[in-house]
Computed example of a mutant assay.
Amino acid sequence: MSLRLPATAARPGPLITGGTPTMSSREIADLVESRHDDVKRSIDRLVERGVIAQPPMADEPGSDAVGRARPTKIYRLGKRDSYVVVAQLSPEFTARLVDRWQKLEAQPTPALPDLSNPTTLKALLLQSLDSTIELQGRVAALAPKADALDRLADTDGMILISDAAKQLQMQIKELFAWLRANHWIFRRGHSKRDIGHADKIAAGYLAHKYRSILQGGETVLKEQVYLTPKGLTRLAVILGRELQ
Protein backbone atom coordinates (compact mmCIF):
# COMPACT_ATOMS: atom_id res chain seq x y z
CA MET A 1 0.00 0.00 0.00
CA SER A 2 2.93 2.35 0.47
CA LEU A 3 5.51 3.44 -2.07
CA ARG A 4 9.20 3.20 -1.31
CA LEU A 5 11.20 6.22 -2.41
CA PRO A 6 14.31 5.68 -4.54
CA ALA A 7 17.67 5.97 -2.81
CA THR A 8 18.19 9.44 -4.26
CA ALA A 9 15.01 10.85 -2.66
CA ALA A 10 15.45 13.76 -0.29
CA ARG A 11 15.55 13.01 3.43
CA PRO A 12 14.23 15.64 5.86
CA GLY A 13 16.51 16.80 8.65
CA PRO A 14 15.67 16.29 12.31
CA LEU A 15 12.64 18.18 13.53
CA ILE A 16 13.15 20.17 16.73
CA THR A 17 10.04 21.53 18.44
CA GLY A 18 10.29 23.43 21.67
CA GLY A 19 13.85 22.18 22.15
CA THR A 20 12.84 18.51 21.86
CA PRO A 21 14.20 16.66 18.80
CA THR A 22 12.20 13.93 17.09
CA MET A 23 13.23 11.16 14.72
CA SER A 24 11.31 10.18 11.61
CA SER A 25 10.21 6.66 10.75
CA ARG A 26 12.30 7.03 7.57
CA GLU A 27 15.43 7.69 9.66
CA ILE A 28 14.68 4.63 11.78
CA ALA A 29 14.26 2.51 8.63
CA ASP A 30 17.67 3.69 7.40
CA LEU A 31 19.29 2.97 10.78
CA VAL A 32 18.01 -0.60 11.02
CA GLU A 33 18.38 -1.26 7.26
CA SER A 34 14.70 -2.08 6.87
CA ARG A 35 11.89 -1.07 4.53
CA HIS A 36 10.11 2.10 5.55
CA ASP A 37 6.67 0.53 5.14
CA ASP A 38 7.73 -2.34 7.45
CA VAL A 39 8.81 0.19 10.08
CA LYS A 40 5.49 2.04 9.83
CA ARG A 41 3.55 -1.22 10.16
CA SER A 42 5.55 -2.07 13.29
CA ILE A 43 4.73 1.37 14.71
CA ASP A 44 1.02 0.86 13.96
CA ARG A 45 1.05 -2.51 15.75
CA LEU A 46 2.76 -1.01 18.81
CA VAL A 47 0.18 1.79 18.88
CA GLU A 48 -2.68 -0.73 18.65
CA ARG A 49 -1.22 -2.63 21.61
CA GLY A 50 -0.86 0.57 23.61
CA VAL A 51 2.93 0.20 23.92
CA ILE A 52 3.62 3.62 22.39
CA ALA A 53 1.49 6.70 21.80
CA GLN A 54 0.14 7.51 18.34
CA PRO A 55 2.97 9.56 16.76
CA PRO A 56 2.22 12.62 14.62
CA MET A 57 2.36 12.10 10.85
CA ALA A 58 3.89 14.39 8.23
CA ASP A 59 4.53 14.41 4.48
CA GLU A 60 8.09 13.80 3.32
CA PRO A 61 8.83 15.24 -0.16
CA GLY A 62 10.10 12.71 -2.65
CA SER A 63 9.64 11.30 -6.13
CA ASP A 64 8.71 8.01 -7.74
CA ALA A 65 10.78 5.87 -10.09
CA VAL A 66 10.11 8.15 -13.07
CA GLY A 67 10.86 11.38 -11.23
CA ARG A 68 7.31 12.54 -10.51
CA ALA A 69 6.77 14.37 -7.23
CA ARG A 70 5.10 12.04 -4.76
CA PRO A 71 5.19 12.67 -0.99
CA THR A 72 5.45 9.82 1.50
CA LYS A 73 3.74 9.71 4.89
CA ILE A 74 6.22 9.49 7.77
CA TYR A 75 5.88 9.28 11.54
CA ARG A 76 7.75 11.55 13.98
CA LEU A 77 8.79 9.78 17.20
CA GLY A 78 10.32 10.92 20.45
CA LYS A 79 13.39 9.32 22.00
CA ARG A 80 11.63 6.76 24.21
CA ASP A 81 9.25 5.49 21.50
CA SER A 82 12.05 5.26 18.92
CA TYR A 83 13.93 2.88 21.26
CA VAL A 84 10.80 0.74 21.62
CA VAL A 85 10.38 0.54 17.83
CA VAL A 86 14.03 -0.40 17.21
CA ALA A 87 13.90 -3.00 19.99
CA GLN A 88 10.86 -4.51 18.24
CA LEU A 89 12.48 -4.47 14.78
CA SER A 90 16.23 -5.05 15.19
CA PRO A 91 17.69 -4.88 18.72
CA GLU A 92 21.21 -5.30 17.32
CA PHE A 93 21.01 -1.78 15.87
CA THR A 94 20.42 -0.11 19.25
CA ALA A 95 24.00 1.24 19.31
CA ARG A 96 23.35 3.09 16.04
CA LEU A 97 20.22 4.61 17.55
CA VAL A 98 22.18 5.79 20.61
CA ASP A 99 24.74 7.49 18.35
CA ARG A 100 21.99 9.13 16.29
CA TRP A 101 20.25 10.54 19.35
CA GLN A 102 23.53 11.91 20.67
CA LYS A 103 23.93 13.86 17.41
CA LEU A 104 20.35 15.12 17.52
CA GLU A 105 20.57 16.24 21.14
CA ALA A 106 23.91 17.95 20.53
CA GLN A 107 22.32 20.33 18.03
CA PRO A 108 21.65 23.82 19.40
CA THR A 109 18.09 24.65 20.39
CA PRO A 110 16.58 27.40 18.22
CA ALA A 111 16.32 30.72 20.02
CA LEU A 112 12.82 31.73 21.13
CA PRO A 113 11.35 34.86 19.49
CA ASP A 114 11.53 38.13 21.41
CA LEU A 115 7.89 38.62 22.49
CA SER A 116 8.72 42.05 23.93
CA ASN A 117 9.26 43.32 20.39
CA PRO A 118 5.90 44.63 19.02
CA THR A 119 6.89 43.88 15.41
CA THR A 120 7.78 40.26 16.23
CA LEU A 121 4.63 39.79 18.29
CA LYS A 122 2.42 41.16 15.49
CA ALA A 123 4.03 38.83 12.93
CA LEU A 124 3.48 35.81 15.19
CA LEU A 125 -0.16 36.73 15.77
CA LEU A 126 -0.80 37.09 12.03
CA GLN A 127 0.90 33.75 11.38
CA SER A 128 -1.23 32.11 14.07
CA LEU A 129 -4.41 33.61 12.59
CA ASP A 130 -3.54 32.29 9.11
CA SER A 131 -2.88 28.82 10.54
CA THR A 132 -6.18 28.86 12.44
CA ILE A 133 -8.17 29.81 9.32
CA GLU A 134 -6.44 27.04 7.32
CA LEU A 135 -7.08 24.48 10.05
CA GLN A 136 -10.76 25.42 10.26
CA GLY A 137 -11.06 24.88 6.51
CA ARG A 138 -9.51 21.43 6.79
CA VAL A 139 -11.78 20.47 9.68
CA ALA A 140 -14.85 21.56 7.69
CA ALA A 141 -13.71 19.50 4.70
CA LEU A 142 -13.08 16.38 6.80
CA ALA A 143 -16.24 16.62 8.90
CA PRO A 144 -18.53 14.64 6.50
CA LYS A 145 -15.98 11.81 6.29
CA ALA A 146 -15.52 11.72 10.07
CA ASP A 147 -19.30 11.61 10.59
CA ALA A 148 -19.63 8.72 8.11
CA LEU A 149 -16.91 6.74 9.89
CA ASP A 150 -18.50 7.37 13.28
CA ARG A 151 -21.88 6.16 12.04
CA LEU A 152 -20.28 3.05 10.56
CA ALA A 153 -18.36 2.26 13.76
CA ASP A 154 -21.59 2.44 15.79
CA THR A 155 -23.50 -0.12 13.69
CA ASP A 156 -23.76 -3.83 14.53
CA GLY A 157 -23.47 -5.33 11.05
CA MET A 158 -20.43 -7.38 10.03
CA ILE A 159 -18.87 -7.20 6.59
CA LEU A 160 -17.39 -9.89 4.35
CA ILE A 161 -13.79 -9.09 3.49
CA SER A 162 -14.65 -9.21 -0.21
CA ASP A 163 -17.36 -6.59 0.35
CA ALA A 164 -14.99 -4.52 2.49
CA ALA A 165 -12.52 -4.43 -0.40
CA LYS A 166 -15.13 -2.71 -2.56
CA GLN A 167 -15.83 -0.14 0.14
CA LEU A 168 -12.09 0.52 0.52
CA GLN A 169 -11.73 0.76 -3.28
CA MET A 170 -9.22 -2.11 -3.38
CA GLN A 171 -8.85 -5.36 -5.27
CA ILE A 172 -10.15 -8.29 -3.21
CA LYS A 173 -6.85 -10.19 -3.55
CA GLU A 174 -4.96 -7.06 -2.53
CA LEU A 175 -6.93 -6.66 0.69
CA PHE A 176 -6.64 -10.36 1.62
CA ALA A 177 -2.87 -10.20 1.00
CA TRP A 178 -2.55 -7.08 3.19
CA LEU A 179 -4.58 -8.63 6.01
CA ARG A 180 -2.41 -11.76 5.99
CA ALA A 181 0.87 -9.83 5.77
CA ASN A 182 -0.14 -7.55 8.65
CA HIS A 183 -1.34 -10.33 10.95
CA TRP A 184 -5.09 -9.74 10.79
CA ILE A 185 -5.97 -13.14 9.30
CA PHE A 186 -4.14 -16.43 8.67
CA ARG A 187 -4.67 -20.02 7.54
CA ARG A 188 -3.93 -22.94 9.85
CA GLY A 189 -1.99 -25.80 8.27
CA HIS A 190 -3.32 -26.76 4.83
CA SER A 191 -6.74 -25.27 5.45
CA LYS A 192 -8.20 -22.95 2.81
CA ARG A 193 -10.22 -21.10 5.45
CA ASP A 194 -9.02 -17.78 6.83
CA ILE A 195 -9.04 -17.26 10.59
CA GLY A 196 -8.83 -13.99 12.48
CA HIS A 197 -5.84 -13.37 14.77
CA ALA A 198 -6.86 -13.41 18.42
CA ASP A 199 -5.62 -9.87 19.14
CA LYS A 200 -7.69 -8.42 16.28
CA ILE A 201 -10.77 -10.29 17.50
CA ALA A 202 -10.14 -9.05 21.05
CA ALA A 203 -9.79 -5.50 19.73
CA GLY A 204 -13.20 -5.78 18.06
CA TYR A 205 -11.83 -5.54 14.50
CA LEU A 206 -12.77 -9.08 13.40
CA ALA A 207 -15.43 -11.64 14.29
CA HIS A 208 -16.34 -15.19 13.29
CA LYS A 209 -19.83 -16.35 12.45
CA TYR A 210 -21.43 -19.23 10.61
CA ARG A 211 -22.75 -18.88 7.08
CA SER A 212 -25.07 -21.22 5.16
CA ILE A 213 -23.43 -22.58 1.98
CA LEU A 214 -24.85 -24.97 -0.61
CA GLN A 215 -22.35 -27.83 -0.93
CA GLY A 216 -22.96 -31.11 -2.78
CA GLY A 217 -26.67 -30.44 -2.93
CA GLU A 218 -26.85 -29.91 0.82
CA THR A 219 -26.88 -26.76 2.92
CA VAL A 220 -23.96 -26.75 5.37
CA LEU A 221 -22.76 -24.24 7.91
CA LYS A 222 -19.27 -22.85 7.42
CA GLU A 223 -17.46 -20.61 9.89
CA GLN A 224 -16.15 -17.46 8.25
CA VAL A 225 -14.16 -14.43 9.37
CA TYR A 226 -15.83 -11.03 9.04
CA LEU A 227 -14.69 -7.46 9.47
CA THR A 228 -16.64 -5.53 12.06
CA PRO A 229 -17.60 -1.90 11.35
CA LYS A 230 -14.91 -0.92 13.86
CA GLY A 231 -12.37 -3.01 11.93
CA LEU A 232 -13.37 -1.51 8.59
CA THR A 233 -13.07 1.97 10.08
CA ARG A 234 -9.61 1.13 11.42
CA LEU A 235 -8.49 -0.18 8.02
CA ALA A 236 -9.73 2.97 6.29
CA VAL A 237 -7.59 5.07 8.66
CA ILE A 238 -4.46 2.87 8.39
CA LEU A 239 -4.65 2.58 4.60
CA GLY A 240 -5.68 6.19 4.04
CA ARG A 241 -8.74 5.11 2.08
CA GLU A 242 -12.13 6.77 1.75
CA LEU A 243 -15.06 4.43 2.20
CA GLN A 244 -17.60 4.27 -0.59
Score class of each variant (00 low, 15 high):
59 D>V: 03
130 D>F: 03
181 A>F: 08
32 V>A: 03
138 R>C: 06
50 G>T: 10
31 L>R: 06
108 P>A: 04
86 V>I: 01
125 L>G: 15
201 I>E: 15
17 T>L: 11
14 P>I: 04
169 Q>K: 11
229 P>A: 13
141 A>H: 08
152 L>Q: 10
233 T>A: 01
71 P>W: 08
82 S>I: 00
77 L>P: 14
207 A>C: 14
94 T>D: 06
86 V>L: 05
218 E>T: 14
27 E>H: 08
107 Q>K: 15
88 Q>I: 02
70 R>L: 10
153 A>L: 02
114 D>G: 00
13 G>M: 05
203 A>D: 00
83 Y>H: 03
129 L>I: 10
175 L>V: 02
210 Y>P: 07
228 T>N: 00
234 R>D: 08
66 V>Q: 09
146 A>E: 10
152 L>V: 04
183 H>Y: 13
205 Y>I: 00
24 S>T: 05
65 A>K: 09
100 R>L: 07
205 Y>W: 00
68 R>N: 12
227 L>R: 03
227 L>Q: 01
158 M>N: 15
88 Q>Y: 04
123 A>K: 13
19 G>R: 07
121 L>E: 06
177 A>T: 12
62 G>K: 02
112 L>G: 02
197 H>S: 01
30 D>R: 12
230 K>P: 01
8 T>I: 13
232 L>T: 04
189 G>K: 01
149 L>W: 12
222 K>L: 11
212 S>D: 15
119 T>D: 13
168 L>F: 01
179 L>C: 07
207 A>T: 15
56 P>L: 07
18 G>P: 08
244 Q>P: 09
27 E>F: 00
213 I>N: 11
115 L>A: 09
18 G>E: 15
107 Q>F: 09
137 G>A: 01
114 D>H: 02
56 P>Y: 08
66 V>H: 11
156 D>T: 08
239 L>N: 02
137 G>C: 03
212 S>Y: 05
48 E>I: 07
195 I>Y: 14
74 I>A: 02
137 G>I: 07
92 E>S: 13
174 E>G: 14
211 R>F: 09
